[in-house]
Structures are given as C-alpha cells and as structure tokens.
Simulated scan of single mutants.
Amino acid sequence: MLRWLAFLFGLWAAPVAAANCREMAFDGADYTICTVDLQADDLRLFLNDDSGKPIGQFTTLERAVGPLAFAMNAGMYHPDRRPVGLFIENGVEKARLVTAAGPGNFGMLPNGVFCIEDGRAQVLETLRYAANPPACRFATQSGPMLVIDGALHPRFLPDSTSRNIRNGVGTTDDGRTAYFAISRQPVTFHAFGRLFRDGLGVKQALYLDGRISRLWAPEIGRRDGGLQLGPIVAVVGDQPAAQVDQPVSGR
C-alpha cells in the first residue's frame, strides 16, 4: 500500500515540461516569447535521426522522442542541412567552430554560440567561446550576436530597411533561464536586439535565423510546418497539449 501511495505521489509531484510561451508586444511589433527554466526543463538540440538522416520537421522529432513542450529552429545550415558552424549533440562535436568573418548574417561578426550545460545555458560571443570553451552538452553556433554584454551589435542600424521574420535566444546572467523569441511580423535587427535587451532584460542574445523561422508551441496552439530545418532546439517532456497526430502544413 505504501509503495502504491509513493508511486501516485511521484506521478503527482513530477514536473510537467512547459516552455511558458506567451505573446508580447514591444515597441510597435508583436512577438511570441517562450521561457525555458534550465533547472526544470529538458532542453536539447537535435539534428539527425538514428540513421544519420536530418530530422527536418518538428512532427518527425516528436514521433522519435515523444511529446515536445516547445521547439524552434536553432541555427543556420547548408543546403544538405549540415550546420554552418559549431554543433554539439550529447557532448559530441558534430561540426566545428567557425571564427572567420564571412558572407551573410552568420559571418557578420561578432557571432556567437548557444551552449546548454547541466542545469544552465549561456550565449557566448564566438571568440570568447574559443578562448575558454565551457562543457556544453549541446551547442549551436549562429550569427550575428544580437546583444553583447548589454550592447547591441555594432552594425545594427535604427533606420535599417532590412526587415524579416526573425527568431533568436537570450540567456540570463545566472544561466537558469533562456528566452526564445520569434517575431510575428518582419522586423529589423535593431528592433529584434532591443526586444532582448530592453524588453526581456538580457545582456547576451543570439540570432538564430530569419526566413525559415519556425515555432512549435502546443500550449498556445502553434505548430509550424514548412521548410525542412537543420538544427532544432526543443524541450522534451510530457506536454498534454501536444497532439502528435494533428496535421500541420509543410512539405
């Protein structure tokens, strides 16, 4: 009897994974913000399935690992969906760090690394990471940095005409909380950086991508499909709102 009661209590006490996604208006634009508690939520990065084939879609990932409380594209990738820069999965480096400047948003230095450790996560500027790599269980490199030590990327212009749907991640100083954001309308880099710095109050934030930005957040009824993705970041766990068999748009 006592053993049965202990089992029931364990079920009751077990935390339910949730990314606490919400809508947020900031400076005339609308965003979806998902907050992840690194000491409570199982946050991981994914790229390929067991056969080495890119996972590509949130629905495919969910069929492989079970319900997802949250998922988002997590970095830039080549046409064959290999990561452009550093990628670490389960402590194994799958792609190397890139420190040189290059074309496109990724090469607009400074860029950075999102690193998931045990119970914490951090965004690090790439050269800072290279000088003293932390023990990342998972990591993805992308660029540009949005916020570096509380300052916006030096190349962001307030009057820029370059607008896009954008997604990114920022982390708190103690590493316990990660904020993932995706814009609901096209925004500039300057506006997106200010969201993290001034709207969410973080000193380190990293751009993940633009045109292909996608979000899986069952608790608010969002299940994006579409383009095949490269790296994916997800909170894995029991999420009753997730409906595995619900069709989504995609190809």
Rank of each mutant, 00 (worst) to 15 (best):
Ala241Val: 09
Gly10Ala: 15
Pro218Met: 14
Asp37Trp: 07
Ile182Ala: 15
Leu11Cys: 14
Met76Glu: 07
Gly52His: 04
Val248Lys: 02
Gly168Glu: 03
Phe87Cys: 10
Arg211Ser: 15
His190Val: 13
Asp224Ala: 06
Phe196Ile: 08
Leu229Asp: 01
Glu23Trp: 08
Phe7Leu: 15
Leu157Glu: 14
Ala139Tyr: 01
Asp118Trp: 09
Pro15Gly: 05
Gly112Trp: 00
Leu8His: 00
Met108Thr: 11
Phe196Asp: 02
Thr161Ala: 15
Asn48Tyr: 10
Asp173Thr: 09
Phe192Pro: 00
Pro54Gly: 08
Tyr179Met: 13
Val236Phe: 12
Gln141Leu: 11
Thr126Gly: 08
Gly10Ile: 14
Asn48Lys: 11
Ala131Trp: 03
Gln246Phe: 15
Gly210Cys: 09
Arg223Leu: 15
Tyr31Trp: 11
Asp224Gln: 05
Gly221Ser: 06
Thr60Val: 15
Cys115Gln: 01
Thr171Ile: 14
Met108Arg: 10
Ser160Tyr: 09
Pro103Ser: 12
Ala101Lys: 07
Arg163Gly: 10
Ala71Trp: 04
Cys115His: 05
Gly170His: 03
Arg222Glu: 11
Pro186Ser: 06
Ala14Ile: 15
Ala69Ser: 13
Pro67Ser: 13
Arg251Ser: 14
Ala178Arg: 03
Ala121Leu: 11
Leu45Ile: 06
Leu208Lys: 02
Thr171Lys: 04
Thr32Val: 15
Asp80Phe: 12
Gln57Trp: 12
Asp173Trp: 07
Ala130Ser: 11
Val92Lys: 07
Phe114Met: 13
Glu93Lys: 08
Gly175Trp: 01
Ile55Gln: 05
Val187Thr: 06
Ile55Trp: 06
Ala95Trp: 01
Thr140Arg: 04
Asp159Phe: 11
Asn73Phe: 09
Leu11Gln: 05
Pro218Leu: 11
Leu157Pro: 00
Gly102Asp: 05
Ala40Pro: 00
Cys136His: 01
Asn132Glu: 12
His190Trp: 14
His78Trp: 12
Arg163Trp: 07
Gly104Pro: 03
Ser213Arg: 02
Gln204Asp: 12
Gly143Thr: 00
Ala19Glu: 09
Ala29Met: 12
Gly221Lys: 05
